[in-house]
């Protein structure tokens, strides 16, 4: 699948923006200013971006607790996301949702999710609506390796198959669910092996490689759009930080992350590939790096001084308040 110069720039920009967003949150979280639980997506960018590059506003995605990357990849406003994570009134969800519940339905982003396995059934519904209404849209559930073991995920795979829905289930296997290895928790070799039991294609992808994800997702999405039914993609990748911020990660081997950053970093791999092939210049990418940094600086600065919600906001957005 040939990508244009603009598409390549967009892919790198989105991945770099996510990385910058997450690396910066890691720093800001340590200051104690950010409330609640924060799960970072750094290291996994090629997956969210490789999939979402194929999507537009007709298409829906459902994310997980580790949702920032999916939000950015699906076009959510970065300032609004940052403000949400700081619990501000002008956050994407008015400060009521927080990191685990960022959503923007206008962008087809059905929400990060605090419930592991919460997304796949919703995605069957989004796929059903797209099919019935004939929008040509597809619906995509991102699921962790841990979430791949949830009953709701299995039921959704089956439902999507028997209803022949335009759904894609993207299992982001980062090796761990909290502190538990996916090598232990998943009974078969690859989560993708399960696809055959639901009569759909299942593909294992190097999730560090943007181009591999882009290609496999492109095929699955094309098939779904054309009425060919659901697919399962398993992206093998890694997270650079703990399960959540504050996780001591003693379950990881020594230097595990350092080695991954050196050898399997999706941004470095992308850079090497496009510059060696002469598709983009290093200076193009350097410029994007600086822009992303400036953008996130701005988002954090704005979020820090943004006003919190007011007392009246407590009782709005619910049908009745006692």
């Amino acid at each position: 699948m040939q990508l244009s110069r603009d598409e390549l720039l967009k892919a790198y920009t989105t991945m770099r923006t996510i990385r910058e967003f997450e690396e910066r949150l890691h720093v800001e979280f340590a200051t104690g200013e950010i409330p609640g639980f924060v799960h970072l997506y750094a290291g996994e960018e090629a997956s969210g971006v490789g999939v979402c590059m194929h999507l537009d506003d007709r298409d829906r995605i459902a994310s997980t607790h580790r949702g920032h990357g999916h939000c950015i990849a699906k076009g959510c406003d970065v300032d609004g996301m940052m403000a949400e994570i700081y619990g501000r009134k002008d956050g994407l969800c008015a400060g009521k949702g927080g990191s685990m519940h960022i959503a923007d339905l206008d962008k087809g982003m059905m929400g990060a999710n605090g419930i592991v396995g919460g997304g796949p059934p919703l995605i069957c519904g989004a796929g059903l609506a797209a099919k019935q209404l004939g929008t040509g849209g597809v619906a995509i559930a991102f699921v962790g390796d841990g979430g791949s073991n949830q009953g709701t995920t299995f039921e959704s795979l089956n439902l999507a198959s028997v209803w022949n829905l335009p759904c894609i289930f993207v299992i982001e296997n980062n090796g761990y669910a909290e502190s538990t290895s996916s090598k232990w928790s998943i009974a078969c070799d690859d989560a993708a092996d399960r696809a055959s039991g639901f009569n759909m294609p299942g593909v294992v992808i190097d999730g560090h490689d943007f181009f591999a994800v882009y290609e496999a997702a492109g095929e699955a999405i094309k098939r779904a759009r054309e009425g060919g039914g659901p697919s399962l993609l398993e992206c093998k990748l890694n997270r650079y930080y703990g399960h959540f911020e504050g996780d001591a990660q003693t379950y990881r081997g020594p230097d595990e992350v350092k080695k991954l950053r050196e050898s399997r970093d999706c941004l470095a791999m992308f850079r090497e590939r496009v510059t060696e092939a002469g598709l983009l210049d290093a200076s193009d990418l350097d410029a994007i790096d600086s822009e992303a940094e400036a953008q996130i600086d701005g988002a954090v600065a704005k979020a820090k001084v943004a006003p919190p919600p007011t007392a009246a906001d407590l009782l709005t957005d619910v049908y009745v308040s006692y």
């Binding site: 761990y176 669910a177 909290e178 502190s179 538990t180 290895s181 996916s182 090598k183 232990w184 928790s185 959540f244 001591a248 990660q249 003693t250 379950y251 990881r252 081997g253 595990e256």
Partner: peptide, 19 residues
């Protein structure tokens, strides 16, 4: 889930004791 933790990993077992 993770009541001990670290199961199947290269690192510490009983790494969590729950979240």
């Amino acid at each position: 889930e993770d009541v001990a933790g670290g199961l199947g990993t290269d690192g510490e077992r009983d790494a969590w004791g729950g979240p």
